[in-house]
Amino acid sequence: MDMGLKGKTALVLGASRGLGAAIAKGLAAEGVKVYAAARTVSAIQGWASELPPSAGEVIAIELDVSKVDAIDTLIDRLLGEEGVDILVNNTGGPPPCDAIEATRDQWLSNFEAMAANVFHLTGRLLPAMQKRQWGRVISITSSGVEQPIPRLALSNGIRSAVVGWSKTLAAEVAKDGITVNIIMPGRIHTTRVDELDANAAKRSGKSVEDVAAGSAAAIPTGRYGRPDEFADVAVFLASERASYVTGSKIRVDGGATRSV
């Protein structure tokens, strides 16, 4: 299927590893020029060097999403090149903690990096999309926005705010040919999930292998997802084929979320 993405330009945040890297690779494979942003540029350059010659250009950019000045510098650069067609908002997760122990400073600093700065970045890039009457905004959250995950209070709360913003924005820009969607990963096998499993193992006294096996057993598919499986959904939402999908939350979790 022709996804209609050749010649498009994308900005993917958190593209050094995990879900962000997988999405950036998937878009590049479709002929998209990808600005891949993260704090660790060398990691981006590493996976980009392994792409086939037919892939779109990948431009590695050093970016810390917690720093609004750095975000504005990147936006100015992109707007000088007529902006991007596709924006993938993907931020790292906050440290695990219970709601009762989360401090005000933790809420503020993580909200700025995971939500406020994302809203700012998107708002500045939208006018160029509106001018072209075509755009895609995809934000990666978590299955915790539908079924809160124990010990991930900061993530559950802040990512839920991103969902509310995304749904509101979708209605505002639909007339401009711009779609705005959320993808909610479940247990996708990334370094972040390995870190969460290690944290759970330390608290429970179990081995990491036992924790992972227990988590996988609770998923109807009986396994963790692969990053490329998740990325395929993002690539579809970015494509011309998904032009009538907007304001949606899409789960990629192997059926783990039990709510209707």
Rank of each mutant, 00 (worst) to 15 (best):
S16Y: 04
A256H: 05
T168F: 00
G80I: 00
L74R: 03
E57N: 05
K249Y: 03
V32K: 08
D253P: 01
V58D: 05
D64N: 15
W134S: 04
P127K: 01
I75V: 15
Q147V: 09
G123D: 01
G205Y: 12
G46F: 11
R223I: 07
Q45T: 10
T168G: 13
R39L: 04
L154N: 05
T122W: 01
A29F: 14
G26W: 06
D85N: 08
R223S: 13
Q130T: 03
R39C: 04
G14T: 06
A153T: 08
P227A: 12
L19Q: 03
R159L: 06
V163C: 09
G83Q: 02
A60Y: 10
D105E: 15
M114L: 13
L79D: 03
T257L: 09
G214V: 03
R104L: 12
W47P: 09
E62K: 15
R151K: 14
A99I: 12
K167S: 03
A216S: 05
A234Y: 04
L121K: 00
V208S: 12
T246W: 05
D98H: 10
K175R: 11
S204K: 11
V12W: 07
S248K: 04
D105T: 14
K175E: 08
E62G: 15
I140F: 05
A43C: 12
A48P: 04
W107R: 02
D105W: 07
I140P: 03
M1S: 15
D72T: 10
T257F: 02
I100R: 13
A29K: 15
G20K: 08
K33E: 10
T191K: 15
R203E: 12
S16K: 07
E209K: 11
H189W: 12
